[in-house]
Design a protein around this nucleic acid. Structure first.
Length: 580
DNA sequence: TCGGAGACTTGACTCGAAGAGG
DNA sequence: CCTCTTCGAGTCAAGTCTCCGA
């Protein structure tokens, strides 16, 4: 019984085909596959009606809702103690969409969200969730097995003769849209999908996936120049969504590898590019100057491109879409000259705040770009991402704005690892060094998270522990002194006691040091996430090489899924690999 | 040149499971 | 062994970038 899970796990690992696609010849003629077969998507479970005793009240009176209205009401009820339901836009959008699915009678009756009482429904859902958490071991096991069966049947596909995992074979269930930041569409109903919404992509000569009984796919096509298996159009933002392959697949791995190779190519021309944009700060053409200053920010600060956005999306910006209101110029700030203060909301409405000393030339240019403009005007009014990328592609084939982010992130990691790693450190210290290097990248890329719930409380606890430890040390020190004094006068027994006390003191001191490291580490990581850069920006071969060179097991850095994703790098890179 | 569609990458958040501490 | 914290994987929203038609 004890052995079972681990042997099972091992078996699963063995079953996974180790196929060294990276040793095959590469070709890129736009064709992504020649054979593709899969089982199609897994639909979310059908809606189950609430028990009769779970009521909805309108204006104090019990109301029996139709099935559709009840389902959508349920989405709202589930979110009752969420911040979203306190937001006006969320409520407005929800109510509007909810009324759309009501029967005429319901629509006539229910005209004011404030008169709706979802409390019973809310309590029911909370209860159900609690019950789910408290499921018995047998129930959990049965559920797990059922799930594994679905994964086994739908979780993989066959592409060009190889079995590959699928990333997201389950369709998104209906829900209320949760846009990030101040999103104008938050609260809108994300519709339930039917087979009639779904486009299947697979080989002509493959076994075509079966739609659910009584249904038909919207379309079945056989396009081998794209990589998706299934697509549909999501109704809130009207965007196409896809079922795609897992990052461990050849298709994804090759793309990832390519990405880092492009970034490495950038290293060869980076000096030339930097010289050129510095020259362009003095260009007579305003467009060229703006481009040069923007590129400087992209290179130095790893800013995102900043595509144009619509009115019906959250107001966030990147480099090219910066507005006058997002920067402040200071001839002098603290003890620094020519400081630009950036303060704006970027991707996912994450705040970007940075005080950056810049070259005088850049500073003066920014002043000119801001002249006679209102706060809401574009800082780079002659520039957009398409102009920028066209220019970059002329400097180097395949160069785009995002390559700079990849390049600077991976470059920073390598440089920091060189700087922070000591040959004769312990494994734990080496891993700490890695984490520090990773953290430097995360800071560069502004990978933030909201402060975890209860962070302050857990910090408080930790500090409490530290205080206690200090007191214990104080106490122990006194005891040691005393014991030594006694030992000087006493015999062997007293000496043994004194030794024991000394050892205890040392242990306490070690524990304190550990706690203090933990304190700074946790506080530094309070708002910083390492995962995003690790997964998307750091050339895995740098890490693999570092592990091999310093004899750190790769498992200490990469989890199982990460090792699957980066198998090409683990296989490819020796201890001497250099990103640049 | 502009806008929108389509394809693909990136990113924070959530929740259950694993792991550490008492 | 139990509880509390940390971690990993999954989820789905939000970016980037290319292409195409008017």
């Amino acid at each position: 019984m004890n052995q079972e899970p681990s042997t099972k796990k091992k078996k699963a690992e063995e079953e996974q085909e180790v196929w060294k696609w990276w040793e095959e010849e590469k070709k890129d003629n736009g064709v992504k596959w020649t054979f593709l077969e899969h089982k199609g998507p897994v639909f979310p479970p059908d809606y189950e009606r609430l028990p009769k005793n779970v009521k909805f009240y309108y204006d104090g009176k019990e109301v029996e809702l139709s099935e559709e209205a009840e389902e959508v009401a349920g989405f709202y009820a589930k979110m009752l103690d969420h911040d979203y339901t306190t937001k006006e836009i969320f409520n407005k959008n929800f109510f509007k969409d909810w009324r759309k699915v009501m029967t005429d009678d319901e629509r006539a009756l229910i005209t004011d969200l404030k008169k709706c009482n979802f409390k019973k429904m809310h309590a029911y859902f909370m209860d159900a969730a609690e019950n789910n958490r408290n499921r018995s071991e047998e129930e959990k096991k049965a559920l797990k097995e059922k799930n594994e069966a679905i994964v086994k049947e739908y979780g993989t596909c066959v592409i060009d003769g190889h079995k590959e995992k699928i990333a997201n074979f389950r369709l998104e269930p209906p829900s209320l849209f949760r846009g990030r930041g101040e999103h104008p569409k938050m609260g809108k109903l994300k519709r339930r999908l039917n087979a009639e919404d779904i486009i299947i992509n697979c080989s002509k000569d493959s076994k075509i996936p079966e739609p659910p009984p009584g249904h038909k796919w919207k379309e079945v096509r056989h396009v081998n120049t794209v990589t998706w298996l299934v697509s549909w159009t999501e109704n809130v933002q009207n965007q196409v969504r896809y079922i795609i392959l897992n990052p461990s697949s050849k298709l994804k791995g090759e793309k990832d590898w390519q990405k880092y190779e492009t970034a490495r190519r950038l290293h060869k021309s980076i000096n030339k590019i930097r010289n050129e944009y510095q020259q362009d700060w003095k260009s007579k053409e305003m467009k060229v100057r703006q481009r040069a200053v923007a590129l400087y920010f992209i290179d130095k600060l790893a800013l995102r491109a900043g595509n144009k956005k619509n009115e019906d999306q959250a107001d966030t910006v990147g480099c090219c879409s910066l507005r006058v209101e997002h920067i402040e110029l200071h001839e002098q700030k603290d003890d620094k000259e020519f400081v630009v203060v950036f303060d704006f909301f970027g991707k996912d409405s994450i705040r970007y705040y940075n005080e950056v000393p810049v070259e005088k030339q850049v500073f003066k240019n920014l002043g000119r770009f801001m002249e006679n403009k209102k706060p809401g005007d574009n800082l780079f009014d002659r520039l957009n991402t398409s102009i920028m990328n066209k220019h970059l592609n002329e400097l180097m084939e395949g160069l785009t704005v995002k390559v700079f982010r990849t390049y600077n992130a991976s470059f920073t990691l390598q440089q920091q690892l060189d700087l922070l790693t000591n040959e004769d450190d312990s494994e734990a210290e080496k891993i700490l060094a890695y984490n520090r290097a990773n953290r430097a990248v995360a800071i560069l890329c502004n990978h933030q998270r909201s402060v975890p719930k209860g962070h302050e409380k857990s910090m408080e606890k930790l500090r409490e522990k530290i205080v206690q430890k200090r007191e214990a040390i104080h106490d122990a020190e006194r005891q040691v002194k005393e014991a030594i004094r006694e030992a000087n006068y006493g015999g062997v027994k007293e000496k043994v006691v004194a030794d024991k006390k000394k050892k205890l003191l040392q242990r306490l001191k070690d524990q304190l040091a550990k706690l203090e490291i933990q304190e700074t580490d946790r506080d530094e990581n309070k708002t910083i996430v390492l995962g995003s850069s690790k997964l998307n920006y750091l050339d895995p071969r740098i890490i693999v090489a570092w592990c091999k060179k310093y004899d750190v097991p790769i498992e200490k850095i990469y989890s199982k899924t990460q090792r699957d994703k980066f198998r090409w790098a683990i296989d490819m890179a020796g201890p001497d690999y250099r990103f640049c």
